[in-house]
Design a protein around this nucleic acid. Structure first.
Lengths: 108, 108
DNA sequence: TTTATATTCAACCGCATGGTTGATCAATCG
DNA sequence: CGATTGATCAACCATGCGGTTGAATATAAA
């Protein structure tokens, strides 16, 4: 999980994922739009691989990458915990409307 | 955006967010369940703040933190780009069933 | 006022990151 | 075959991260 979020924390890698979402491509193709060397891009791909977000198949001298979306899905699911926060806020708001007692838990 | 994902890439910080989702609390309270020093925890809070995920109000000597869920929501929204990938996959699958022509774009 | 509590700040350490360059390897092209 | 292409590997460098310790700040409690 940490590795997934870490992988997402870099614009270059997010770009790669976006690219891969519309079809598999090679390391070179992933590197091409970037302003860095191929070696650097290759390292980014490795980070994505380590996070389980990308799978690589070696086809001749080309390394073809494809998106592995499951970790993205579970990261997204994890992220949704904050909805609980919203629901709770709404509940509190409702309480305020329903009963006009002074709000509890105001410890200033 | 980078900063949000970076902030999420650490278990301690995710724990803090989870904690904050069920109500505001102080830096000390956030630090308490962790196995690290208060200073270290304080740094983590600062990272969350920098990412816009947490807002702090100084109340006497206590620094009270509360969750700021908007960045989480937009990170979550960003993450959903991968659904496009799934839809595309299903389309391709459908194509295979509908017409039995050899699949296009197979450049091996 | 003295003491204790809540927190930050500053300096330091070890280690990972993100980038470079130069060399290497494997596969394809002439 | 030799030359070129696609990619990795290894070494290096600067920077940032995550943690520590020790001191400083500010508020609250005795």
């Amino acid at each position: 999980m940490d590795t997934v979020f870490h992988a997402l924390a870099h614009e270059a890698r997010r770009g790669m994922l976006r690219r891969l979402a519309s079809g598999e491509c090679t390391v070179g193709e992933l590197a091409e739009p970037l302003t860095m060397s191929l070696e650097a891009a290759s390292k980014h791909v490795k980070v994505l691989e380590r996070a389980g977000l990308v799978h690589r198949t070696v086809d001749g001298r080309r390394h073809v990458c494809r998106l592995e979306p499951d970790p993205l899905a579970s990261a997204s699911a994890w992220l949704h915990f904050y909805e609980q926060f919203w629901n709770q806020r709404l509940d509190t708001l409702e309480d305020l409307f329903q009963s006009r007692r002074p709000r509890k838990g105001n410890k200033r």
